[in-house]
Design a protein around this nucleic acid. Structure first.
Lengths: 106, 106
DNA sequence: CAAATATGATGCCATTTGGTATCATATTAA
DNA sequence: TTAATATGATACCAAATGGCATCATATTTG
C-alpha cells in the first residue's frame, strides 16, 4: 500500500481491473486463472493485479508456486470515505441521487 | 457524456480533478476562478474540467463569456452503483469496512 | 535429478495523459 | 468602435500506461 486514496482510485480507473475485481467476488484466483478469462497475456494481467494490490483492493498470498489473489474489501475504504464527503455535502440532493442510482442499475 | 461508468472513474483517477470537485462543493466557479487556485495554466485546468464534464461529474453553464462549472451529484451515481455491487457481496464484512472508513477519516 | 508449471522481471513499443505555449473567437466595457 | 477579458482550439512535449515478447527463478511432479 502507498498513497491513499490515489492508488485506489487509479486502480479503479481501468475497466479490465474493475472486471477482475468483480471476478474475485466469486472466488479467489491465481494469476493464471485470471489470465484465462482475458484476451491478453499473463504478463499484462499480472501488471493489472500489481496495480490492484498497490491500490489495496486485493491481497496476494503466496501458496507454493501459486499466488492467490483475493479481494480486499477494506481497500475500498479510502474511496468510500472520499466519496462520503460529497454525500454529506449534498444532503438535500440525496433522493435524486438514489433514484439516479436505481435507474443506472437497470 | 459517453461511456458509463468508465468516464466517471477515469475522471476521479486524477488528484487535481478530485481537488477541483471538492472546491466546487463550496461554490460554482468559472474556469478562471478554478485556475487561480492551481499552479498550472488555465489551459491545463480547462482540460481537467472537460474530463470532469465527460465523466458527468460537473455541468458547465455558459453565461456571457463565462462558463460556470457546477458540481453534478447525479454523476456519481454510476460510480456508487458499481461500488454497491461489492457492498452487497461483502455483507458480513461491512462492519470491518465501516471501522476502516472511520479510521481513514482521521 | 529432470521436466513441467507458475510466476517474476525486464525491455520494448504505441497510445494516452497531463502539461505548456500560442493563437483564435466571443463578450463586455470604455 | 476599440480594448480588455474569458474562453476555445491547436500543436507540441515528456512521462505514464497498457500491451507484448522473452528470459529467469522457484515449485512440483515423474
Amino acid at each position: 500500500m502507498t498513497d491513499q486514496p490515489q492508488n485506489a482510485f487509479r486502480a479503479l480507473a481501468d475497466p479490465t481491473r474493475r472486471d477482475i475485481l468483480r471476478m474475485l467476488t466469486t472466488q479467489d484466483m491465481t494469476i493464471a486463472q485470471v489470465s484465462d478469462r482475458f484476451d491478453m497475456t499473463r504478463a499484462a494481467v499480472k501488471k493489472h493485479l500489481t496495480v490492484l494490490s498497490d491500490g489495496g483492493l486485493i491481497t496476494v498470498e503466496a501458496r507454493g508456486r501459486e499466488r492467490i489473489n483475493r479481494l480486499d474489501p477494506t481497500g475500498f475504504a479510502p474511496v468510500l470515505s472520499w466519496l462520503e464527503f460529497f454525500d454529506r455535502f449534498w444532503d438535500g440532493h440525496l433522493d435524486a441521487l438514489k433514484s439516479a442510482i436505481e435507474k443506472d442499475m437497470q
